[in-house]
Amino acid sequence: MKEGPDIARLAALIGDPARANMLSALMGGRALTASELAAEAGVTLPTASSHLAKLCEGGLASPRRQGRHKYFSLASDEVARVLEGLMGLAAGHGHLRSRPGPRDPALRKARVCYNHLAGDLGTRMFDSLMARGLIGRGGDDLALTPAGRAFVADFGIDLSALDAGKTRLCRECLDWSERRSHLAGSLGRAILGRIEDLGWARRDRQTRIVAFTPDGETRFLERFCPAPD
């Protein structure tokens, strides 16, 4: 018998089309009911329940009860990073599923990757933070520089609360559509939350799209992607 991590089991869980659709739906960061996930997967509710039981048993999803309702979400940030990496790999090899209409350009421009900003605006923000020395790299790790901490605090984010959390502050996440990095970790989550609190953008409840208002996009670009001097 071979020893070591059983990647075949996890691959089989993700590889089923219905379960893959459910996991993709949960990448929006919202907890969803079995009925909602059944609709996303195009299967009946009993079939969806069976798939969800396997995903929970395999550590990819987790259930949560709120009153009379039972919701499901991704089990961890680590699961989200693996799924986003697989999306990038699939896109890079031409394994794409296209939806007609205006959704594709909007998804590529700005969307939620589990709990942080992805898409063109997400990667542009990451590149700018790195280029301006607000985030530094030490080997494979990312960290806010002193200038970066001042920048983030000025944006209205409580860094002391983030520092006290268990999630790493800055993480690099490969963007499946741009094939470049965007910012994950507790800071990425906090920045997206602050953008929403300011009314610059809102998440589309039916998709992963982050829709910026014209004024919100202008303010976002001025702060996070300023033109070089």
Rank of each mutant, 00 (worst) to 15 (best):
A80H: 05
A80G: 10
R81A: 15
R81I: 12
V82L: 15
L83R: 09
L83G: 11
G85R: 11
G85D: 14
L86V: 13
L86S: 11
L86P: 15
M87W: 07
G88R: 08
L89A: 14
L89E: 15
A90Q: 10
G92N: 07
G92K: 06
G92Y: 01
G92A: 13
G92E: 11
H93K: 08
H93Y: 09
H93V: 08
G94P: 10
H95K: 09
L96R: 15
L96W: 11
L96D: 13
L96Y: 09
R97Q: 13
R97T: 15
R97M: 06
S98K: 11
S98I: 09
S98Y: 12
S98P: 05
R99F: 08
R99S: 13
R99I: 10
R99A: 14
R99G: 12
P100K: 11
P100T: 13
P100D: 15
G101E: 08
G101Y: 01
D104N: 10
D104T: 14
D104Y: 05
P105N: 10
P105D: 07
A106K: 13
A106T: 04
A106I: 02
L107I: 12
R108K: 15
K109C: 11
K109F: 13
K109G: 08
A110Y: 09
A110K: 08
R111E: 01
V112K: 06
V112Y: 03
C113P: 02
Y114W: 15
N115V: 02
N115L: 02
N115S: 11
N115Y: 05
H116S: 08
A118R: 01
A118F: 04
A118H: 06
G119T: 00
G119N: 05
G119H: 01
D120Y: 05
D120V: 03
D120S: 10
L121E: 10
L121T: 01
L121N: 03
T123Q: 02
T123H: 05
T123K: 00
T123N: 03
R124Q: 12
M125T: 04
F126D: 02
F126P: 01
D127N: 07
D127H: 07
S128I: 03
L129A: 04
L129N: 03
M130I: 07
M130P: 00
A131C: 06
A131T: 14
R132P: 09
R132S: 06
R132M: 10
G133E: 07
L134I: 03
L134Y: 04
G136V: 07
G136H: 06
G136L: 06
G136Y: 02
R137V: 12
R137C: 06
R137I: 10
